[in-house]
Amino acid sequence: MDTPKIRIIPKLEIKSSNVIKGIRMEGLRVVGKPELLSEKYYLEGADEIIFIDTVASLYGRNHLIDLVTKTAENIKLPLCVGGGIRSLDDAKTLLRNGADKISINTGICNNSKLITNLAHAFGSQSVVASIQAKKLKDSWEVYCNNGREKTGKDVCSWSVEVIERGAGEILLTSIDQDGTKLGPDFELIENIKNKVSVPLIVSGGIRNVDDIIQLANMGVYAIAIANILHFDFTNIDEIKLQLKNMNMKTRIARNN
């Protein structure tokens, strides 16, 4: 069957000048330097790269800019940047300094009109709505401030709303699975996938290529990966070769 190509997208969560990784967004371990890791992932054949400044929202800081510029100089790929974006000016600063897309969570939870304003100013294709979901009994709640704060919003209805307001993609993170290597929350993903027509980037819990294939079979073709790449359980080259061997469509980077 003909399908879009699977995108493998390393997700680099950043705290001050380091890439960090936690479990369920807590107990953070330092992984390395963002500019070095992004170059490594670029050379391994990443399809895009995501940077998330994990503390920017909490303290209202925005010190990503130098880092974004430094990184953008070394990778010939789309770079999506999030963390601490509160206004059109915040977004413009990032887009003018090397980001190709911006990912936004807390800013739109506090002010949903910001999505529309961003989409009008920079085009929907630049606006990635980041949704962090935590499981309740039989639904999921939207969290902001990097998994620290409840919003009372329902993930399903919020997904529909962010698209109606103009987001071009959704980055859906399962807080419960994040950093656990226990597999994605397939039930959550299935629910959201059925409600939105825009590309869905899923994140949280990816263990291996089998998970990626299962997601692609559900119609999800963009996979954000952190833990198994950061801690060298596998690399992007290997993931892509395995996907190819399983007859899944994905890009194999060429260096000519």
């Binding site: 399908t3 879009p4 399809d47 027509s197 825009v198 073709y221 963009a222 890009r251």
Partner: peptide, 11 residues
């Protein structure tokens, strides 16, 4: 066949 729009990615 439920291909996403916009088309975002490598072709």
């Amino acid at each position: 066949d439920k291909w996403p729009v916009p088309n975002i990615g490598w072709c």
